[in-house]
């Protein structure tokens, strides 16, 4: 069975999707931060670093380069892998997806 790619598009300051995904995803399943969630990938927020650091123990985390750049995020939290649109396509080819609204 293929792992599920969980896609999050809102900041943890706006919705609790990050917590929901952590609670309801299987260990090892990758998580991708896009759109407004990319803002939360920025290094510097103790809350985001704690939250995402906690998730990273069990899940690879990716953030979308184009969305990071658009939001002026040039330094991401350590451990987050930055991918571009082409990398996004590769992930979607590799995994089933669950795009959290």
């Amino acid at each position: 069975m293929r792992n599920m790619l969980h896609i999050i598009n809102r900041s943890p300051f706006y919705t609790k999707t990050v917590d929901t995904v952590l609670k309801f995803s299987k260990k090892g399943s990758p998580i991708l931060l896009i759109e407004d969630a990319a803002a939360a990938a920025a290094a510097g927020s103790a809350l985001c670093e704690a939250k995402l650091g906690n998730i990273m123990r069990d899940h690879p985390i990716y953030a979308l380069k184009e969305d990071l750049e658009a939001r002026g995020v040039h330094k991401v939290i350590e451990g987050i892998k930055v991918i571009d649109y082409a990398g996004f396509v590769e992930l979607v080819e590799k995994y089933n997806t669950c795009s959290w609204a």
């Binding site: 599920m4 609670k23 299987k26 260990k27 089933n96």
Partner: peptide
């Protein structure tokens, strides 16, 4: 729940 979610083709 994680098991239920991950066994789906589409979520």
């Amino acid at each position: 729940i994680p098991e239920l979610i991950e066994e789906q083709d589409v979520v």
